[in-house]
Simulated assay, not measured.
Amino acid sequence: MKKLILTTLLLSGSALAGGGGMVPAGNTIASIVANDPNFSTLLAAVQAAGLVDTLNSSGPFTVFAPTNAAFAKVPEADLNALLNDPAQLKALLLYHVVPGRVTAAQVMKLTSAKTVNGASVNIGVSGGRVMVGNATVTRADVRASNGVIHVIDTVLMP
């Protein structure tokens, strides 16, 4: 069932974005996400929430980007709720975005950060690993022309 839901999310994201023609070009956060197969679910969610232009804008932004495997951990009921509520999906995605370009070295010095959706997310270091909420940063400092991406292994829930 979860695969069906994820497929629906992917297809609805493509349909809402006008198919493949909306894939951003260049080195923006949106284009990096669009061109990395590990972020296909994130891309579909960004498209469904109408945030492609935001992540293509000048920013700068710091995005804690969940992988497809991170989205696969989301309980089915929660994923269904997101699919049926574009405003909630947008709020969830904006909880993964911090204004400004915050590098890994800077993130490691923080205890929290205010996200674009207005809520704060806890940040810490545990066992030498950077934790953002309950997610672990698995790859840091993916540089984009309009910010930076830190890859995480769990979808952050506000």
Rank of each mutant, 00 (worst) to 15 (best):
K2V: 09
K114Y: 01
T7A: 12
D153K: 09
I32C: 03
E76S: 12
D141I: 03
Q106V: 04
Q106N: 03
A70N: 00
V130D: 05
G124A: 14
M22N: 15
L156A: 07
L94F: 00
L110G: 08
A105D: 14
T136P: 04
L92S: 01
K114H: 06
L89V: 07
V102D: 04
F61V: 11
T54Q: 07
V46K: 05
R139S: 12
P75K: 06
L10K: 15
A30P: 03
V102Q: 02
A140T: 12
A104S: 15
G13Q: 09
Q88W: 00
T136Q: 09
N134V: 05
L82K: 06
I152M: 01
N84F: 01
A70M: 01
E76H: 03
L79T: 10
M108S: 14
T8E: 14
P24C: 03
L156Q: 04
A30Q: 00
A48S: 15
A87Q: 15
R101W: 05
F71T: 08
A65Q: 06
K3Q: 14
P99D: 12
V63W: 00
N84Y: 05
A77W: 03
M1D: 12
G128F: 11
T115L: 11
A81R: 01
L79Y: 10
A25K: 15
V33Q: 00
V52M: 10
F64E: 11
A17N: 13
S14N: 13
V52Q: 04
G18R: 08
G50P: 05
M1C: 08
T54I: 08
L82A: 12
P86Q: 12
M108G: 12
N38Y: 01
F71N: 05
I5V: 15
R129G: 07
T138V: 14
A70H: 04
Q47R: 14
G118S: 13
T7N: 13
A65T: 10
L55N: 06
M108L: 14
G19R: 09
G50F: 07
T41M: 10
A25D: 13
V142W: 02
N56C: 00
D53G: 15
G19I: 03
T41Q: 10
S58V: 04
V148W: 00
L51K: 01
L110R: 13
L11G: 06
I149Q: 06
F64P: 11
T115G: 10
L4R: 13
N122A: 14
L6H: 07
A34H: 01
L92E: 02
T54R: 03
A144S: 02
L79M: 14
T41F: 08
L10G: 13
V151M: 01
S40I: 06
I152L: 02
P86R: 10
V116C: 08
V148E: 06
Y95H: 12
G26K: 09
T154C: 04
V33N: 02
A65I: 10
V132T: 03
R101K: 15
N117K: 09
K2R: 13
K73H: 02
A45M: 03
A91L: 07
G118M: 12
I32L: 14
L93T: 07
M1N: 13
A25H: 11
N56S: 10
T115E: 07
F61Y: 15
S57Y: 02
V46F: 08
G100H: 09
V97H: 00
P99T: 13
S145A: 09
A144F: 00
I149A: 08
G26E: 08
L6V: 12
G20V: 09
G21E: 12
Q88V: 11
H150D: 08
L9E: 05
I152W: 01
V121T: 12
